[in-house]
Each structure stands twice: as C-alpha cells, then as structure tokens.
Amino acid sequence: MRFRPSWLLPLAAAAAIFWLSAQSHYPGGLELPPPLDKLAHATVFGLLALTLDLALRTSSPGLPMYKRHLAVVALVALYGATDEWHQRFVPGRDCDGLDWAADTLGAALALAVAYLPLVFTRRLGWSGWRRGTPARPHPDRDLVLVADPHWGRALTGLEAATTAHPEADWLFLGDVFDVWVGLPGLETETQRAFLAWVDARRAAGRWVGLWLGNREYFLDRHADRLDLLGEGMGGRLEGEALAWEHGDLINTADRQYRLWHLVSRSGPLWLLFRLMPARLARRVSSWLERKMRTTNAAYRLAFPRAAFRAAAAAHPGTTFLTGHFHTHEVEANGIALPWAHEGAFMVWRGGKVEAL
C-alpha cells in the first residue's frame, strides 16, 4: 500500500474529531439534545469513512471492495472506541456507548449512500480491483481468449485446446463456471481441477489471466496463483493494444443487475457466507445460480449496441473485448466474444482476434 495525498483527508478528519472530543462543549456553545447528538456522531464519522475509502481506493487498487469496506468500518469503529475512551477524561463530557454505535453505523451508511448512485452511471469501476502483472513476458505468443464457458462438472474443450496450443498464453474473461464462490468449503472439485490446470500452465512458463464476471465471487484469495486477476472495468495488457472487461457493467439501463453487482460484492454478503455452514452456503449459491438464469431476461436478450460502442470508444487505439453477451458482435474497435460453449475459444494473434 502506497502513501498518497488522499491519505491527508482521513488524517485531517481524524484530527478534527479528536480536537472536538477534547472540548467540554461543542464549538459556539452549541447544544445537541438526543437524538441529534447521535446524528452528529454518525455524520462526522461517516465523513471519516468516506475519506478512508478514497485513500484505500487510490493507494491499494488490488483490494476488493468488500475487504476495503470491511476495513473502513473496522477502522472507524476502532477510532470511535478510542475517541469515547478519550472523552472520559474531558471535564463536562460523558462517555456514551450509543455514541460509538452511531459512529460505526454512520460509517456503514455513508459507504452505502455514496455507492448507491453508481448504479446509474458507468463509474461502477469503483467496485473493481486488479492484482498481478498486466504485461506478458512474451507478447508474440498466441493469447487464447475464453469468455463464458459456464463449465459445470467438466472443463469442456480446455484440455484439447491446451494440447493443440501448448505454447499459448491464456486469458479468461469471466463466467468460467455456472457459479464460483471462492470461499473455503464452497469450491467444487471441477473448480479445484481448473486451478490445478492454472498451476501447470504457469509452471510451464505460460501467462494466465482471469478477469471475473458476474458469476464469480470473492476469488481474490487465488490472486497469487494467477499472473493477473481482476474484476470490474479497466482490464488491459501493457505493451499490447488490448483492453477488456467482462461486459456485465456495459448496460447502464440494467439497474436491477447493477444494484445486485454492488450488493453481491459487499462486505455484509461476504460475512453472511463466511458465517453460514458450508452445506447451507452451497445451497444458497446454487439457488443464486438458478435465479440468475431467468432474472432480468429483457436486458440480457438484446445486445446493448449503443452502450457497447460508447464503452469501446473510451479505449481508443486498442481492441476492446467483452464476453457476457454470448453473441459475437463487432462495433468499431469493440468486439463482444462469442459464448465459449463446447470449447469454442478465440485467440489474440498478431494484433487481431480470430477463432482458435
């Protein structure tokens, strides 16, 4: 984590809170009777949470949103407890445990309110993250592109393509499985077999990247097993005119899904799955997968051509790729890759995208 000027904001906010708590009365003799005093606590500590979130986003781009928000709420709660303890020694001030509860709740609500407007814009990139190296050691090699294989109990086509193209690098553009929750006890034997395949490819000196789609959750614990692992917008290869995202965030009109995108990558949902017994969590993830097959079909059946063209235009001078739409479409510099069903993979070769 690098120190950025954005860290000056939470430091200034924390210092201001400490100074205010050291006063026997609010500035100007202001009196705030309950519950306005609790509202003031929630507001001030909510602002502290927002400045912390900004600092972490700019200094730690490899930190997923759920971890970032859990860290922010934990830091604010810890600072709030310290602040309450400090007030015990200030004449005329009372130490109220409800103030600490307001501090913590204010932090959580501030994050939720600040991120909710992202449902209506392309700025959902705030929810994205990236770890690893976006540069291939041998950019002259073929790069096999796999979008939306939706594997279940078999890695259809993977072994055959590996045998036929042993020198190639690999990039997976999301929805690798019907659903993949990367928490201990929830991964399937097929998913573990895929990770073993990744290990073997990297041991052979091949570059392997995975960009998460709308059916992968909490996979950041596998980041060290891949050359590149990321989510959201902003995928690219340095030194090559290639950029991408999964495609689920292209259509800004699909607000129902965009809200689900934020909720499904949030700290509370991660905590819920971590606290569930593994058997129940597997049943819930399977239920989610079934629901996703049929929910919001109106937005998934029609290709959002104008939105796709606008997203591609934001990456001039590159070939911009997505998966997600299960159809092969070309708009200016943008290419939506076809569904990688039954091993129908594509390849980036010589600066062009073609069928493998």
Rank of each mutant, 00 (worst) to 15 (best):
M1P: 06
R2V: 14
F3V: 14
P5K: 11
L8I: 04
L9K: 01
L9N: 03
A12S: 09
A13N: 05
A15E: 02
Q23I: 05
Q23C: 13
G29S: 12
L30Y: 09
L30F: 10
P35F: 12
P35T: 11
L36H: 12
A40P: 01
T43C: 10
T43P: 00
L47K: 03
S60A: 15
S60I: 10
P61S: 03
M65N: 13
Y66E: 14
Y66F: 14
K67I: 08
L75F: 13
L75W: 09
Y79F: 15
Y79L: 15
D83L: 14
D83Q: 15
Q87H: 10
F89S: 15
L98C: 09
D99R: 01
D99Y: 03
D99N: 10
A102I: 05
L111T: 11
L116K: 10
L116P: 00
F120V: 10
F120P: 00
G125M: 12
S127G: 13
W129Y: 13
W129R: 06
R131G: 10
A135Q: 13
R136I: 07
P137E: 12
L145E: 01
V146F: 01
D148E: 09
H150V: 02
R153Y: 09
R153G: 12
R153Q: 14
A154E: 14
L155Y: 07
L158P: 01
L158S: 02
H165C: 05
P166H: 12
V181N: 01
L186I: 08
E189F: 06
T190M: 10
Q191I: 08
R192F: 12
R192Q: 13
A196Y: 04
A203N: 02
A204G: 11
G205A: 11
R206T: 00
L212W: 02
L219M: 13
H222Q: 12
D224T: 10
D224G: 13
D224K: 08
R225P: 00
G234P: 01
R236A: 04
L237N: 04
W244A: 02
E245G: 00
I250F: 03
T252H: 00
A253Q: 13
R255W: 15
P268H: 14
W270S: 01
L271T: 04
R274Y: 01
R283Y: 03
V284A: 05
S285A: 15
E289Y: 09
K291G: 08
T295Y: 14
N296M: 09
R300E: 12
R300M: 09
R300C: 05
P304C: 15
R305C: 11
A313I: 07
L321S: 00
T322Y: 05
F325Y: 14
H326I: 05
E331T: 03
E331K: 02
E331R: 06
E331F: 03
A332Y: 05
N333F: 04
G334Q: 05
G334C: 11
I335F: 00
I335G: 02
P338W: 09
W339C: 06
A340V: 06
G351I: 07
K352S: 14
K352P: 00
V353T: 04
